[in-house]
Write a protein that binds this DNA or RNA. Structure first.
Lengths: 237, 237
DNA sequence: CGAACGTTTGATCTGTCTCAAAGGTGGTGG
DNA sequence: CCACCACCTTTGAGACAGATCAAACGTTCG
């Protein structure tokens, strides 16, 4: 088994995986073994490219990535973020093809994940992770389709907060958001100019702040109420 | 095995399933058996309700359904359509919870589907269907986030055309669209008033028409080009 | 015939985009 | 250590897509 020091980000990522499904000793062992062999990718580089065969399942250990769709005329839509503890290439069928590009938004550390035989606890964790991914896509759809700029922004920040909290990267309404406003705008279906104004409005309202890479959500309850948000729940035990 | 007459819609639905993955004799047999026992649901009734445990995998044999998200203040976003040959409750983990409501938009015929053991060809079909569903969600996100009203409408109609064509319900740029403009507007993130005007614009342009439940896409190539659409591809054989 | 429902039309309002320029800020090289 | 450059954020003014509110117009159906 691995020595005392895990790679950067590994504990956080493991925390999330372990929370998805109860893992037995052999599953944990397999994960530790996988994490022994990590890779790095600098910001702006592609992790996955649309239309190409998917390499295999990977786990993000640290850093932010995003699924991106490009429109021929230059417009760009960010489909979803991929955070530490979350998976890439988590498909079930043979020879899957990537449905979108995935790019590193910051420097990213990741590792390959082992295949899991059916009925192994690891398989269950993969499946639950996949269901959560779907839940995030649904949330993104309602954001873009029916919320105003302010609501969209608040809702997305709340979602990111909840997701980061799962691996201990957010707490007390605060977390690090290492992105430019332009990227965030592409996720929200807004222009960066309008996002800038929206953020100012939120500050004036006292709803939330995002400055110098740090987000502060002043009142989680109130914000959740304001955007009519329901927390993600994917399975019942 | 079943007699000569299959339930309404069954051949179309089977056509799509069989195209997803090569099915062996026993898989086809299992499907036929499942289809022997169909259920009906009238329009506007709920097939699945958000937050409740999912019953099991179901196959739509005929009619249209939709996944819907409701916002407390009355706004409504239609996440995706569920068409004949497509699946409901197609999840992989234990005790899954519904992530959205699903309502019947027209009268719907459906049947329960059997569990498929891993490595059974049926399992592969389920997985491919699931990947396609994800592809449709991504498409919906880019539509809502980055396309104009006219582009959104054209893009969605093209998608529906392709999906319906998979089970022989669309051909030559034409298909039946048995919905109200209001429902379509909820899918497109528009108001029904604006959709009405957008449809008129499309008619004037000669791009496409939708009257009395019938859609005509005049030039599939040109339309596809116009909205920068890439056809859905989910796996490579 | 009237009621319910869906579509169309008109007038007006507003949220967000567009284009352009001015400020920061951090990094790099001289 | 400063000057410069690249990149990000902010500000301003104006344009436009789409929302809103209201009413008229068709259908269909009891």
């Amino acid at each position: 088994m691995t020595g005392a020091s895990l790679p950067r980000g590994a504990p956080a990522a493991l925390q999330r995986i372990a929370a998805l499904a109860p893992l037995d000793e052999s599953a944990l062992q397999a994960l530790h073994k996988a994490i022994d062999d990590t890779s790095q990718l600098p910001a702006r580089r592609e992790l996955v490219s649309e239309g190409r065969e998917i390499g295999g399942r990977r786990l993000i250990l640290s850093g932010w990535a995003a699924r991106v769709r490009l429109i021929p005329d230059g417009r760009r839509q960010l489909i979803s973020f991929v955070l530490p503890g979350e998976l890439l290439g988590n498909c079930g069928h043979a020879r899957p093809v990537a449905l979108s590009n995935v790019i590193a938004l910051t420097n990213v550390t990741y590792c390959a994940l082992p295949e899991a035989a059916p009925s192994q606890p690891l398989r269950e964790a993969y499946e639950v992770s996949r269901a959560m991914e779907e839940a995030h896509l649904l949330a993104q759809i309602t954001r873009l389709g029916r919320l105003t700029a302010l609501e969209r922004t608040a809702d997305l920040l709340l979602e990111l907060y909840e997701r980061l909290a799962l691996c201990g990267l957010a707490e007390g309404g605060r977390f690090a958001l290492p992105l430019t406003q332009e990227i965030m705008a592409d996720a929200l279906g807004l222009t960066s100019v309008h996002l800038s104004r929206t953020l100012q409005l939120a500050r004036r309202n006292g709803d939330f702040e995002w400055r110098e890479g740090q987000v502060v959500l002043h009142d989680l309850e109130a914000l959740t109420q304001m955007v009519g948000r329901v927390p993600v729940q994917v399975s019942c035990h």
